[in-house]
Design a binder for these strands. Sequence first.
DNA 1: GTCCACCTTGACGTGCGCGGAAGGGGCGAC
DNA 2: GTCGCCCCTTCCGCGCACGTCAAGGTGGAC
Lengths: 157, 157
Amino acid sequence: MTATREDAYLQIGEVAERLGVTHRTLRFYEEKGLLKPPTRMEGGFRLYSEDDVRRVERIKQLQRLLNVSLAEIKEMVEAEELKSQIRAEYRRDADVAERREKLQRALAETEKQYALICQKVEQLSAMQDEYAQKIAKYHGWLAQLGSADEATGERVP
Amino acid sequence: MTATREDAYLQIGEVAERLGVTHRTLRFYEEKGLLKPPTRMEGGFRLYSEDDVRRVERIKQLQRLLNVSLAEIKEMVEAEELKSQIRAEYRRDADVAERREKLQRALAETEKQYALICQKVEQLSAMQDEYAQKIAKYHGWLAQLGSADEATGERVP
DNA sequence: GTCCACCTTGACGTGCGCGGAAGGGGCGAC
DNA sequence: GTCGCCCCTTCCGCGCACGTCAAGGTGGAC
């Protein structure tokens, strides 16, 4: 059990290879506060947990899909961190009012992000439709060209 | 008619204000070949047509939604330019085979872009679902807290 | 003519998101 | 021990997408 736990920890190079990023990127995220400082070996080597790895994946996902700055992504992942805090505190005798406040903050942030995503999906879907129509038009024109090789009386705008 | 045509041309500052970009951005796009050099007044002032304006809007849209480099966007808008060329050549006695080839190139590029958009929409939709579930969970937890604590909470939408 | 807002080119500066090299230390195998 | 590889911090550099400043030309109103 302790063995599996220790095996679960990865050095920076392994994480980098797994996720297709460089060790520089991981250290950079740590510098910028997007990643909490990972645990270390005695000699100072960083040891990343599976949670850490998931966090990096999340960051990359947000970056790819939402096109927002790392500063904004930092706020986003910090909101997710709140959730973990709430979970951790759940067993203890944390104040109910305090827990609710945290939940509401996390919820508000999540809803903000959700709205952003919805907006993006909407716009992208519109663009998708637009492209589908363009493709249909091209196919139409090509069909005309194909059938009317000598009989040229068709309309191509 | 000539009057409306001339009125339709805009100076760089007007375009910038309309689109919420700076004149530097417009010049930059021109330098990089994303915008074809606009017509000029005698004194050298740039005069942008409505087509030019739409082109800039398009560039900005692609940038916002697809998160790709200007170099890639250049290729995309160049593909759209092919379509205009085909239109322009239609009246003339352009070779049918040549026109078909251009159409097919334009179609191929458009389909490539379409695939990219589909992929993005898919991933973003998945993320959207994920967030919707998260929000539902938060609401559930808040409801639990609210009922267990017997009612100082009011905001559980 | 004069004024002033707007335009021109050119060149250097900036913030972001890392890249890469220097100089040094840790770790496991032999 | 020592060899080789991976890791550490520090610091300068780079590409992208512009921002910004300088020095001057243009255009229409008065």
